[in-house]
Amino acid sequence: MTKKVLITGFTGQVGSQLADFLLDQTDYEVVGMMRWQEPMDNLYDLTGRINNKERVSVFYADLNDFSAIARMLEEVRPDFIYHLAAQSYPKTSFNIPIETLQTNIIGTANLLEGIRQLKEKNGFDPVVHVCSSSEVYGRAKPGEVLNEDTKFHGASPYSISKIGTDYLGQFYGEAYGIKTFVTRMGTHSGPKRSDVFFESTVAKQIALIEAGFQEPIIKVGNLSSVRTFQDARDAVRAYYLLSQESYKGNVPCGETFNIAGEDAYKLPEVIDLLLSFSSRHDIKVETDSERLRPIDADYQMFDNTKIKSFIDWEPEIPTSKMFKDLLDHWRDEIKKGKVPLNR
């Protein structure tokens, strides 16, 4: 029988690219959970298949509505659940802390509690990937390499919400035997990356400047951060491989994994690399105080040893290609007449 996959956060960069991967690499049926008013920009390449019911469909629900989550689980009964939905913007979380905590913590609890109740009712037993974040480590010390045992340090309402998400994934696995695993993904990017994230807003601004919609000045926030980058398309491959090992019983319930790129950049180096792909040589960079966070995660370097001991995986897409693809994505959007906000 063909297996079913449920993806929460279906309309996001990672959710939509995970759907692309699964449709291309497996014979699974894919169900994407979304709220009815969410933008469809990242799904236009799939709308034909969705309309024709070719192995992919949409289920409208909201993480904050337990009855909708319970109905979705009962009707879909997926073999695999990739829980990617979240309020995922750290800087935005300072402005909407309650919504961030509600969606990411209580929303995750709604999903996991719905799974627990259905498991007790009739043996429902899916593999559940809970997507946490490298932001759980917060403000790491310069030179510190982050592994799965590194102490958490909430540096934003978002990071605190993901600490709660992380613990929920572990708890429901350990307490109720639900086949959960938790990933703490470092900075990931590439095509479809939201423009609220650093490298994407820089790429978007370059594309706007090239098209004549912005003066040749890139506005940025804190540039003192050092972090690794990986392409989200590499990350979804790791998600899939971990889910397969969990299905086979090779991943203990509630296990946690770092997953990050292995190329480290200072943020000014990211700007220089993106600018190297442009024919414009008059672009300047200015700090915009409105783009600064009250607290920032300035240093994020990760140890991928654990995940590599469970799956045969390593990042394959060069970061230079990832950044180039991201810039080309914004160029293509603008050519289509989709002029984005300057934020």
Rank of each mutant, 00 (worst) to 15 (best):
D166C: 12
Y167C: 05
Y167H: 03
Y167P: 00
Y167W: 08
Y167V: 06
L168N: 05
G169F: 03
G169E: 01
G169Q: 01
G169D: 05
Q170E: 13
Q170R: 14
Q170S: 13
F171W: 05
F171S: 07
Y172E: 03
Y172H: 06
Y172S: 01
Y172C: 00
Y172G: 06
G173S: 01
G173F: 02
G173M: 12
G173T: 07
G173Y: 03
E174T: 15
E174K: 15
E174C: 02
E174D: 04
Y176F: 15
G177N: 09
G177M: 03
I178V: 13
K179I: 08
K179V: 04
T180D: 08
V182N: 00
V182D: 10
V182E: 00
T183H: 11
T183G: 12
R184T: 08
M185S: 11
M185D: 09
G186P: 06
G186F: 07
G186Q: 10
T187W: 04
H188D: 05
H188S: 13
S189E: 04
S189D: 09
S189A: 14
P191M: 10
R193V: 13
R193A: 10
S194L: 12
S194I: 11
S194D: 13
S194C: 09
S194V: 15
S194F: 12
D195I: 08
D195W: 14
V196N: 09
V196G: 00
V196W: 13
F197R: 10
F197C: 01
F198I: 09
F198L: 09
F198N: 00
F198D: 04
E199R: 08
E199L: 05
S200D: 15
S200Q: 10
T201E: 05
T201P: 00
T201C: 05
V202A: 15
V202M: 04
V202K: 09
V202T: 02
A203E: 08
A203C: 07
K204I: 10
K204M: 12
Q205D: 05
Q205E: 04
Q205H: 02
I206F: 07
I206Y: 01
I206Q: 08
A207N: 04
